[in-house]
Amino acid sequence: MFSKMTVILDPRTKIIMFISWFSLAFICRDIYSISVLLASSIIVLLLTGSSVPILKKMKYMLPLILFAWPLWTFLNQWSLFYSSGKGIDPYFGLLMMLRLLLIVIISLAFIYFVKPVEIIKAVSSLKLPSSFGAVLALAFRNLYIIAEDYKSIKEAHTSRGLELDRGSLITRIKNHIPLLIPLIIRSIDSAEKLVLSLELRPNIMKKRKMEPLKTIDIVIVIGCILILFLTVYYNYYVVTWNVS
């Protein structure tokens, strides 16, 4: 079941909220503002009751997130995008690790809170081409299908003696290879069929009338814009720490 937040908020508000949230993760350029953003994100998840499922899913990403610290500490000078310009820089490594953590949390929250149908509705009401919304929603729906397929293939393989959760890290990675073959075949197949099913449902792509935004939506949209403006001001005019 979806939490109350998904029911209360207008799809347009949710999309704007997530775009702002994502933008903030990139705008914040010092460890203090990114820490504040991370803490407030966790508070939001706690308040909406979504922290447990989201944090559960995060455990698979944790090694990658932790790996970001040494990577950016020692190798930041060769980065194409960001560099502290100081050579070995543990502070910068920490900043990038927290940023990655934040991006993962926001992505998982987006999947948790925004349903494919809401993307279609929001895109349609924002006067964007319906195919744009359909492609986004398709990609999104496919994520769930892949997750379901992964689960059923895993069950079928473990019941033929494939041990996935025991042994060294290398053994576990090696044992996951047989899962990939049917998963890739099924993903390609289901993506094609999903496109077809979208074509067969005539009303999905039709323009939809949406109700006007409620007060709570307006407050949140204004809040998002305000926070974005303040963060840009703080990071680009107050903080002088330079990230080239």
Partner: peptide
């Protein structure tokens, strides 16, 4: 299976309605 587009039963049925 792949004709289901919504994540919940209600959502999928809503998608088939014109409004």
């Amino acid at each position: 299976d792949l004709q289901i587009f919504g994540l919940t039963v209600e959502e999928d049925l809503e998608l088939s309605l014109r409004e």
